[in-house]
């Protein structure tokens, strides 16, 4: 038994973290979904191989596994990366890798020249729609087929999301050709759910860090706000939430990487725990910031809003707990 990233995984994570801290400031985040610096950031992620980390080396990827994916997407969550990294890494890369006819698209994604959106429930509503050239639709719950649809083959309208940096759209038009079926779809769904869980862990860490920094700096009643027991205890509980969600997310990555028969259950548990943890941390972080956190001039709201969106994306906590219940024989 050994529960830790390998030295190589740790190194990769650290490279990604440096890159994102440098190139994905909150100023860049505010410029999303179509800020001028975002395409360059996407290309940089491509250059270091992040976007193809699950793609086998013979198809131009890094051939890494889901544990590495989790490590990378926690970092993406930490900066609320306003780009479809989970879509590219978890879904598009592995699905396109086996398909020679889509070699060019894959190569463009891996180089960070092209983004791709995902619409698992085929509702026509999905994020990153204005910048993506394709959308992968279908595959909700791991069932059915996934289709590859060129976005300009249909009509696009902006939708007002709680989180404007997501670039949510309504897309109408013909659905493209099916590119995956059966177990590939199931694996893709699970990877995307897990990737979202990882982003939520990163978001939770970031919001907690911000709250801690704020209550150390902010003084009221002649003392730092963070010296009051009510604030201390609320933040301690927030740390408990994140500390006990993160291992479940990493372990679900391990389950997927090793093809465990419990992978579905583990991924659902990861998403449920990460989503509720990040949502709870969001509330605590906002409360600890007081009115300051309630303004759009301060940065906290960017992370709150992404958390709210991702907590319900790819199945909310209740949905995934039902999946776990099914695996335990408690839900039919």
């Amino acid at each position: 038994m050994h529960f830790a990233l390998s030295a190589e995984q740790e190194e990769f994570r650290s490279v990604i973290r440096s890159l994102l801290e440098r190139e994905c400031s909150t100023q860049v985040l505010r410029s999303a979904p179509d800020g001028p610096l975002l395409p360059g950031l996407w290309r940089r992620l491509g250059e270091i191989g992040a976007l193809g980390l699950l793609v086998p080396e013979e198809h131009g990827g890094l051939g890494l596994d889901e544990v590495s994916m989790v490590a990378v997407l926690i970092e993406a969550g930490r900066v609320a990366l306003p780009l479809p990294a989970t879509e590219a890494i978890a879904l598009a890369g592995p699905l396109l890798a086996g398909l020679p006819e889509h070699r060019t698209i894959l190569a463009s994604i891996l180089r960070g020249e092209l983004t791709i959106a995902a619409d698992p429930a085929t509702t026509g509503k999905f994020p990153h729609g204005h910048t993506a050239e394709f959308v992968l639709s279908g595959g909700w719950g791991g069932a059915g087929s996934v289709h590859l649809t060129p976005i300009d083959a249909g009509d696009l309208a902006s939708l007002a999301s709680v989180d404007p940096t997501r670039g949510l759209v309504r897309h109408t038009g013909p659905v493209g050709e099916p590119i995956a079926d059966g177990p590939e779809v199931l694996r893709g769904w699970r990877r995307a759910v897990l990737g979202t869980a990882a982003e939520l862990v990163g978001l939770g860490r970031r919001m907690l860090d911000m709250a801690v920094r704020h209550v150390i700096d902010r003084r009221q009643f002649g003392a730092p706000v963070g010296s009051f027991q009510a604030v201390q205890h609320a933040l301690a509980e927030a740390l408990v939430r994140i500390e006990f969600a993160e291992p479940a997310v990493l372990a679900a990555g391990y389950s997927m990487a090793t093809g465990s028969s419990d992978a579905g259950r583990d991924v659902s548990m990861a998403k449920a725990l990460a989503g509720t943890a990040a949502s709870a941390v969001a509330r605590t972080a906002l409360q600890c910031h007081g009115a300051l956190g309630y303004t759009v001039e301060y940065e906290l709201h960017l992370f709150l809003k992404r958390t709210w969106a991702l907590a319900e994306a790819w199945g909310g906590a209740g949905w995934h707990r039902r999946e776990v219940g099914r695996s335990l024989g408690l839900v039919r």
Binding site: A121, T123, K125, L159, A160, S161, V162, D163, R166, L168, W308, A309, E312, A313, G316, G318, W319
Partner: peptide
């Protein structure tokens, strides 16, 4: 209410 609404709760 947002839990009832699910993913569409993201919409304004």
């Amino acid at each position: 209410a947002l839990e009832l609404i699910g993913a569409d709760g993201e919409l304004d």
